[in-house]
Design a protein around this nucleic acid. Sequence first.
DNA 1: TGCAAAAATGTAAGCGCTTTCATTTTGGCT
DNA 2: AGCCAAAATGAAAGCGCTTACATTTTTGCA
Lengths: 333, 333
Amino acid sequence: MATIYDVSVMAGVSLATVSRVVNNNARVSDKTRRKVLAAMEALDYRPNAIARSLASNRSDSVGVLVSQLEGPFYGPMMAEIENVLRGAGKHVIIAAGHGDEEQEKEGVQFLLNRGCDALILDVEAVPDAYLVELCQGQTPIVLINRYVTGIDDRCIYLDNERGGYLSTRHILSLGHQKTAYLSGPLYKLDVQQRIKGHQRALEEAGLPFDPELFFEGDFHEGSGRAGMEYFLRLGRAFSALICANDSMASGAIAAALEAGLRVPEDLSVMGYDNVPFPAYISPKLSTISNPIDKMGKMAALWVLQHVYEKTGTSVTGKFMPELIVRDSAQARD
Amino acid sequence: MATIYDVSVMAGVSLATVSRVVNNNARVSDKTRRKVLAAMEALDYRPNAIARSLASNRSDSVGVLVSQLEGPFYGPMMAEIENVLRGAGKHVIIAAGHGDEEQEKEGVQFLLNRGCDALILDVEAVPDAYLVELCQGQTPIVLINRYVTGIDDRCIYLDNERGGYLSTRHILSLGHQKTAYLSGPLYKLDVQQRIKGHQRALEEAGLPFDPELFFEGDFHEGSGRAGMEYFLRLGRAFSALICANDSMASGAIAAALEAGLRVPEDLSVMGYDNVPFPAYISPKLSTISNPIDKMGKMAALWVLQHVYEKTGTSVTGKFMPELIVRDSAQARD
DNA sequence: TGCAAAAATGTAAGCGCTTTCATTTTGGCT
DNA sequence: AGCCAAAATGAAAGCGCTTACATTTTTGCA
């Protein structure tokens, strides 16, 4: 692999000059530039990103930490981030935290040690204090999908309380009185918020929250299925099931169908997140939009503005969920 | 940020000694080791990965290039790769090629320039020759989801011809005579292979391949829908639709249902890939397994063995698809 | 106790690049 | 031609680490 030194020798100039034309950040006479470019071409010279980072203390790369690589949720987000950043000539290094505090911290360290210019974090297991401290550090941080007081300006998040509210209000407006709630893991803040919204809607309608018709799942299809089976075993009547995400809703629907229930005729089901697939199969899932891709884009734009000093659209942190009415929920007969 | 120099001063030893205890690759007396570790602890020392890479010419990271970050297909693969590698203390840098030759090449360059110790590539747009040449280079390469003659030992792939064959044979065994085929982009090799298998099954049954009942989609739901609409508009009778992947199958089913057809009563549908979601919604999709996650794992193991010299399970390149019978295809009345 | 071999540690030269500062060249004026 | 500021270029000191090689210390054993 040719180095900058080889180029400088071939072009008959100094290292500094080659560096200047590579980085295009200082005046170089046309004649010299042409000589250098020719040498670069001839040697098929590729700047060594590692050496460049070490010397300049920047890497033109931003680190992204997500909970999972698989699943329908994070993919679009990563894709958007990559898109925006690549468009600006920056690169993305992705790591996974697996919703585990240790692994999340380790992932952050890894990205930091790799000299990322900024970090976009979707973390759920680390405590707020850790994040606040992280934000004091050298490397700029953006949080996605999480709101932490004290570093509001670094947070890009969905109003999950409102989403929970919208979902339940929709169900109630269809005339349902008895509803079951299929929740995500309770330690997650967004899960708690969704429940809060759910309860607010119930309260507003003068309906009680029934702790028995509540099941804590893990956001995966399997637990949706498990939740449905639990509710069925319970033997309590309910005409609508409100789920904390689409994956669990899918699992629940599958279980319901297998148990001989018709959806939505016998049971209305609401999802949450609006991930792609459930829109395409029968019954099409009514759900709450979670513009995770737009949030990813926003995070990338934040980085572009605050780290790479590109100007552009102003960055807003709070996103609003919307009700998406499809076929899985209908009016109660 | 503390450097190795700070640690060496605090511990009263040389740089080299600190480096030795950090890397744990040369004998250091217990007493010295303890002093150094104490200093590291006290200074909260974190080795700078960039500097380390530059000096040692390895990075403990492997680059992964996938076509897309979103969608149900690559997530599980990336997750498996990350899993295996993280378990071995290695890290993963992910880039996206977007199925575009230029972007794929650029992605490869990026990963190479970042000093990855090895590359795992899922590329579709670059020509075979490019890959063969790449394999001559310094950095070890593994190809996933692609078979290239001449570098067979670097390829981890699915027998797509067999998958196509299995899918169609299943449909034919159910008594269907008139089938439509919803293909992926024809320039892709795996797509061509699936078609070959399809045709072999037809031939074996003495049935003709009907070029009119053939539609080239793009692997996304939308084109599944479009394909279905095209077939419907055509007005030709067919009792089964064989799709080149699950996403298009989902789109096609949605369109069929909207057109008033019942699946599978009026129309049997086969998917391909066995991605998670369609298993959970009605009708559950019959499909062909594509163990992309296992292939990812295998690629990671290959790297572990050939690059980091860990021994372990032997690595096999060719994977066999399997028929997965669920509800979307049934015997013709 | 003395000595060679083994073990531990230190020295210093890079890895490939950026960047500050010094030096040389250029070009516009008089 | 001669002068000077501006432009172009070069020299060299790092960035934080690894590692070959040299040196010192320890160990085992006669």
